[in-house]
Design a protein around this nucleic acid. Structure first.
Lengths: 347, 347
DNA sequence: AATAGCACTCTCGCTTCGGGAGTGCTAAAT
DNA sequence: ATTTAGCACTCCCGAAGCGAGAGTGCTATT
């Protein structure tokens, strides 16, 4: 339980064993360990140490006479080591941030990009939730006449959310008049939140009034539609892994990604009291999530607390490459936080 | 080969057997057939018929003494039966079309919706490619000043493609002047194709000129980015199927959906000479696609020939529910064709 | 032409049985 | 007091063997 009672040698052995198991997915024996890593201690000594580590709960043996396999506790120790030193190589950081800053500046684009990058880097399944905005802020509206009474409304909100919608007006209106209305509303509403807008009393111009009502509706809709929307990627990465294709548990875990609501709840519950920038590593479901018994998730929150926050994470087999996943998740979370921060504070 | 040489009884037996196999995924024996469908002929007779059908290549036996399993040829016959009578129930048609007409009217939305509907109805993996527009047509542009020299450009094209992009101008420009530029360009360029626009000579106003160049770039970009972009859904549907989770072939098929280019080529190649509205059913890869040895795909083209066309399809196990998939694919293809037609012809 | 009967074939699940890998313990060595 | 060699023991795993069951193809019969 307490890692203070681990000797230096036990620590290194534990780390080596876990690294080996992550690579090979095979139980690791004493002999293999000493040969493969050129240790100058005998297998017997290692066996003693392994017995001790097993006693303390860091290792497990699948059956009496097989090698050892890391237990959840073992992985947890392993991960706690990663946490400090792990930094993404600078070149990779550059590649990633470059992709973000040349992408189209809207939430949807960022989300898909983040999901894609996470999946690719970690070789796991990624999931990103769109930022949950506490209060939608108006930024800009455009009204584009299409045909007859149909008008295309493009509404841009301060968080970067963009919504397009077809309005059907009571009577045909010229593009000119539409543009005037748009300009007027833009001047009037810039930077205001939903509440402030709905507090306005009736406008002189009936068209203005109509459009404003629709804008309010649309702002509420867009926010509730966009907030927490799930983006995932990388299901293919994991299909070949024995943990997912062979065991039934694994398939159940993947099913999660077909049921947005459950997944959202999972993300919400595990991150409610975690800080921005602080990673959480869920190992083996932590007794809470039965579907994840065989898997691990690396999860982080991003955004601006109190304003707009979202979650992102990676799901993989319990023996996933934490060394690669953890720094990636952390870095992307930081990046998204910056982006959200930029767009919220007036850009 | 030729189905004319099938007796009436052989036909019914073949259809029954295939239906049974699609349900159970188990080889079908003579006894099971006669009991399960209350036939008033003896198993021995059925065996004779099955021997004949096997001889002709419609059935196959996994080993000397097991029931029969449909061969590719058998499925092909089965599907040819579906093709005529199969219509989607009216209520389902309504539900689907309703979803489309209340969705936001842009290509991306339609694509995701189509993919989702196909996956859900067919219980397979769906794939939809965005329409490949031969010639991008300008419809409208909006320029929204954000901060300093940054300008958000929203470009709407006639096909319904929408592109948003941040421009960085040489010097700060007021929102007013931006709006004027936008209005001017909208009057000038409405309905014009890329070629026509690039034929314009230098504008008097330098800003107009700059923006126009960027618009041209963006139109080309958007079209090439959007054209043939893949949307898929329903990977989960198929994870539990033995054909995909157990066999290695199945996993290879799913890998396809992680590699857009290969999948695009497949769709392109199989539909080049098929008409709009004409379905294609690929059974067992047809000797061409090794990855699909165990699967079938139902594919259709949609759109307006010569103007903008795309592809959509469903992948499933070879024993997928054709009776459900085929009419769905056909119906959605028709719906998308209508939508494309509407947006192209001015709307 | 359809059917009953029958021998035959092949799979599948079960058990049995070494080989092998790895352990834990004990006793010797450092 | 820690480390190590030696050794008996345990357990998995794959191969081989076996019987039951399902289904067939053939032949003789109706």
């Amino acid at each position: 339980m307490n890692m203070a009672n681990l000797t230096e040698r036990q620590k290194t052995l534990l780390l080596l064993l876990i690294r080996d198991y992550i690579d090979t997915a095979q139980p690791v024996g004493s002999k293999r360990l000493v040969e493969h890593y050129h240790l100058d201690i005998s297998p017997a000594t290692i066996r003693n140490e392994m017995a001790a580590l097993t006693e303390m709960g860091y290792l497990r043996q699948p059956h009496t006479s097989a090698g050892r396999v890391p237990s959840e506790e073992g992985y947890r120790y392993f991960v706690s080591q990663m946490m400090h030193n792990a930094e993404l190589p600078e070149t990779v950081q550059h590649t990633i941030s470059h992709q973000f800053y040349q992408a189209r500046p809207d939430v949807e684009q960022w989300m898909t990009l983040a999901a894609s990058i996470l999946a690719h880097q970690s070789q796991g399944v990624s999931v990103v939730t769109a930022p949950h905005t506490q209060q939608a802020k108006y930024k800009h509206v455009e009204l584009i006449s299409t045909q007859g009474r149909q008008v295309l409304m493009v509404l841009v909100m301060a968080g970067g959310e963009v919504s397009q919608q077809i309005l059907t007006l009571a009577e045909p209106v010229s593009q000119e008049r539409l543009s005037q209305t748009a300009t007027r509303l833009n001047n009037l509403l810039a930077g205001l939140a939903v509440d402030a807008i709905s507090a306005f009393s009736v406008r002189p111009d009936a068209l203005d009034q109509d459009v404003m009502t629709l804008i309010l509706q649309d702002m509420r809709n867009t926010i509730s539609r966009t907030s927490g929307e799930l983006y995932t990627d990388g299901l293919n990465n994991v299909l070949a892994e024995p943990e997912f294709s062979e065991s039934d548990d694994g398939r159940r875990a993947l099913k999660l990604f077909g049921e947005p609501s459950t997944l959202q709840e999972l993300l919400a519950r595990t991150t409610t009291n975690s800080n921005i920038g602080g990673l959480q590593v869920l190992i083996g479901g932590e007794g809470e999530w039965d579907e994840l018994r065989q898997c691990s998730m690396v999860i982080a929150r991003y955004g601006v607390p109190g304003m707009a926050t979202g979650t992102l994470g990676v799901l993989g087999p319990m023996r996933m490459s934490y060394a690669r996943t953890i720094p990636t998740v952390r870095y992307v979370a930081g990046l998204l936080s910056d982006l959200v921060n930029d767009t919220i504070s007036g850009e």
